[in-house]
Amino acid sequence: MRLARPVHDMREALVKATLPQPDGALPALANLDLAPFWLRFDQTAPAHLRAGLWAATTAFAALAPVALLRPVRLDKLRPSEWETVFRASCQLPLFADLVMLTKVVACLAYFDDDAVQDIVRAGGEA
């Protein structure tokens, strides 16, 4: 399944905002090349997982303008705006499963990177 570019960009923005910037020697998810991850995800992830992430992207895309009181696309949000959107999602029970799924996807993407694994296993966290 190949996503339209804007949908892919919003999906990637959501995943990167979910786990933005650990401290210490660990790199930011935003600085990692996620292209190999998305290729594997789109080709091999079970349909319900792909559909779940699409649903999360759609839900956050709908929530962001409401939480920020202005029309805005997910891939244009600043870090502080993401925190506002995440805080708003915590008030909505329907978002709990979507946030959990997004956390799983973000962590899979982040720890797929060999350098991240090496740093953590060597005890290089903050």
């Binding site: 905002a17 979910t18 786990l19 933005p20 910037q21 650990p22 401290d23 210490g24 660990l26 870090p79 993401w82 925190e83 995440f86 999602s89 946030v99 959990m100 997004t102 956390k103 799983v104 973000a106 962590c107 899979l108 982040y110 720890f111 797929d112 694994q117 953590v120 296993r121 966290e125 903050a126």
Partner: peptide, 20 residues
């Protein structure tokens, strides 16, 4: 590591602190 991290509390900056 990935599954352990996904079980940490929070999302966004809070999850990042947990991963740190």
């Amino acid at each position: 590591l990935a599954v352990l991290a996904s079980r940490l509390p929070g999302v966004g900056a809070e999850l990042s602190r947990g991963v740190s």
